[in-house]
């Protein structure tokens, strides 16, 4: 059995929670003040995911801001960054344009969040 500590981010209270894990299974959670906190802890401990926001190179210079349309596994963020950094997008770009489809086969698209005018 393993003890894991984590801070809840659902509301400003920021409860410090403690979880007992059996391998990858959550056995119990304590320290939370509400159910939302418990749900957050369970998700965070079994499959922590993050939205990735970053920029991508634009042909001709400059950067376009991008995000992952959905959350990505936390452990894959740096690899995704490497993939995104190797790309260069051709203007024009509209907000919401899919720039990388299904990044690393994770089922998540990388979309533009700012716009670049055509040259």
């Amino acid at each position: 059995m393993e003890t894991r500590n984590l801070t809840c981010i659902v509301c400003p209270l920021g409860c410090e929670m403690t979880a007992q894990m059996d391998g990858r299974k959550v056995v119990s959670i304590s320290g939370n003040t509400c159910k939302r906190g418990e749900n957050y802890a369970r998700a965070e401990l079994t499959d922590p995911r993050r939205t990735l926001t970053t920029t991508m190179r634009v042909k001709g210079g400059g950067r376009v801001s991008v995000k992952s349309k959905d959350t990505l596994p936390k452990g894959k963020l740096f690899e995704c960054m490497t993939v995104i950094n190797a790309w260069e997008v051709q203007p024009p770009v509209k907000i919401g344009d899919v720039l990388i489809k299904d990044i690393m086969g994770l089922g998540v698209d990388i979309v533009a969040t700012s716009r670049i005018n055509g040259v």
């Binding site: 939205t51 926001t53 970053t54 920029t55 801001s65 991008v66 995000k67 907000i95 969040t113 700012s114 716009r115």
Partner: peptide, 25 residues
């Protein structure tokens, strides 16, 4: 907002979590 490329904008106004540039747009 143009340089705030992270998200967390618009939860109250749009009910969505947008990045800075998206909110501004």
């Amino acid at each position: 907002l143009n340089q705030c490329i992270h998200n967390g904008f618009g939860l109250h106004v749009f009910g969505e979590e947008l990045t800075g540039p998206e909110y501004a747009a």
